[in-house]
Amino acid sequence: MKAITFPLYICIAFLMTSCVNKPKDVIMRANTGFALGTTYTIQYEIENEKQDFQEDIENVFHIVNKSMSAYIPTSDISRINRGEEGVVVDDYFKEVYEFSREVYQKTDGYFDPSVGALVNAWGFGPEKPINNLTGKQVDSIMEFTGFDKVSLSPDRKISKAHPSVTFDFNALGKGYAIDLIGKMFDEKGINNYIIEVGGEILTKGKNTKRVQPWTVAIDSPVQDDDAERQYMEYIFLENKAMATSGNYRKFRIDPETGDHYVHILNAKTGYPMKNNVLSVSVIADNCMKADAYATAFMVMPYEKTKKLLSELEDVDAYVVSRDQFGNIQKYVTKGFQDLIIK
């Protein structure tokens, strides 16, 4: 799974090219910056030039970090990971925890936010990695890995079966922050917006400057460094979220052995993922859901992924993989296919 500061490996770009016949009375505000360890670009339609919700956006990032950033020692998650007694989690932590439990159960444990100790050991977290990590060490960490080893009491306190259980909400925390920004816009009466943070996207309404739904592009997971950026597809998004997970950009190189380790970990084995899936883009009704399942489908066996997709409501996916001969293969659900621009 991923690890806050939310590294930017997601490969989605949204298109902001101009178009003829734009409505003259449409005013679009664009706020850009750096948060959660990555960049963000947020566009929204405003009623007058004085409206600017930059401060409100930054406040959302602040409250998410305060609750769930493993890189901030005073955050709730850091205090819980250290084993502090009596930590009462806030509404944000509770919501993410409860949804994590749901996805953990639906994915048969392939999605597991208790992998924080493994994330650190492999060099993708806030703690110093273990170089030349041995199988025995991995097995030892696996003894206190598992979302079935934690519980949340009615008074909002976390109980652990082992004191070394370590949370990592990176696989859905960024998507959750995006949803909170969207909720803030909704409360302020903003009807048309696109929120992009590190490649994860939430949309509402339309791009009224272009008189069409918001248009986003899915990067190809195979890029030639000397060529122009390649895209797999362009899609229309309206009142939907999209998140992409992949193994092709973020990795760590062991300084002693030179081995490459991808950032997504298999909670069943304790090791970085090694499979033929290159990337998964998920569309859902909110970004936390899209974010979580994009990571889960990277880890799950291919047939399990397809079966679960057939059972989930409001979740569609675009899966890119290699076959045994190295050829690129695509699996696209009907709901996703319907949004692709022909």
Rank of each mutant, 00 (worst) to 15 (best):
V315Q: 03
N48I: 07
F14I: 06
A292V: 06
M142E: 08
V277E: 11
I235F: 08
K128E: 06
P221K: 02
E256Q: 15
D224E: 08
V222Y: 00
Q329E: 05
D168E: 09
K330T: 02
F251S: 12
L265Y: 14
E196T: 05
V222W: 05
Y318N: 03
F99E: 10
E47D: 04
S67I: 09
K157W: 12
D226S: 01
A241T: 12
Y97M: 07
I141Q: 14
K306G: 02
A227Q: 13
R79V: 13
G116P: 01
Q324E: 15
K330N: 05
D148W: 08
I63G: 07
Q105A: 14
S281I: 15
W214Y: 04
A243H: 04
E196K: 05
K240I: 06
Q51F: 02
T305I: 12
V277C: 13
E55Q: 06
D148S: 06
N59K: 11
I283M: 14
V320T: 06
G135M: 11
T5H: 09
V119M: 04
S159A: 09
P7G: 10
L308C: 04
A171W: 06
V119I: 07
G125E: 03
L36R: 01
N192A: 11
I158Q: 10
E187M: 02
I253D: 05
F99S: 12
G125R: 07
I12A: 05
N247T: 14
S151R: 15
K128A: 07
K268P: 11
M68D: 15
I57M: 01
Y92L: 08
I72C: 12
T38Q: 07
G135A: 08
V280W: 02
A3T: 09
R210I: 07
F144E: 10
S140P: 09
N81C: 14
A267T: 12
N276W: 08
K268D: 11
D91V: 06
P73T: 03
E313D: 14
R82H: 11
V197H: 09
S114Y: 00
V332H: 13
K342P: 04
T203C: 01
S78N: 00
G199C: 00
D291T: 00
H260L: 03
G270C: 02
T17P: 08
T166F: 04
L237Q: 06
E45L: 12
A243E: 00
T244E: 12
G86C: 08
P213T: 10
D25P: 12
D291R: 00
G123R: 12
W214C: 03
F167S: 03
T305Y: 04
N132S: 11
E187H: 05
Y231S: 04
I27W: 13
P163A: 01
G123Y: 12
N31V: 03
A70D: 09
Q230W: 09
I253E: 03
R156D: 10
N275P: 00
Y176T: 02
D148F: 09
Q137F: 14
A121P: 00
K50T: 10
T257Y: 10
E311K: 07
E200F: 01
G205N: 00
